[in-house]
């Protein structure tokens, strides 16, 4: 069975609000979130602390330019029903 992650065209962005005491904790939690979601190391694209928590935009690249894009494999007419 094919993995959904392999079908991501390039990256996964996560936007959420992390309740935290300060920006430092917010950043730590953001990085931790990547690990807890089994995404490994993720980038913090954007963060905004407002006193109660931090609004974040996080990104995990699944494919970078020049990688072997698994979502392009096995796209053929006879396979279409399986996709």
């Amino acid at each position: 069975m094919k993995r959904a992650l392999d079908s991501v065209m390039d990256a996964i962005d996560i936007e959420t609000y992390l309740v935290c005491a300060d920006p430092l904790e917010g950043k730590k939690l953001a990085m931790q979130l990547g690990t807890e979601l089994n995404l490994g190391e993720i980038d913090i694209m954007y963060e905004e602390f407002d006193g109660y928590g931090m609004r974040v935009r996080l990104r995990k690249y699944i494919y970078k330019p020049g990688n072997n894009y698994l979502y392009l494999e096995n796209i053929a007419p006879e396979k279409e029903g399986d996709l």
Partner: peptide, 14 residues
């Protein structure tokens, strides 16, 4: 929407 983010390539959703 990721143009200002400089640590990786632009993504299709952006």
């Amino acid at each position: 929407t990721d143009e200002a983010y400089s640590r990786g390539p632009i993504c299709v959703t952006s």
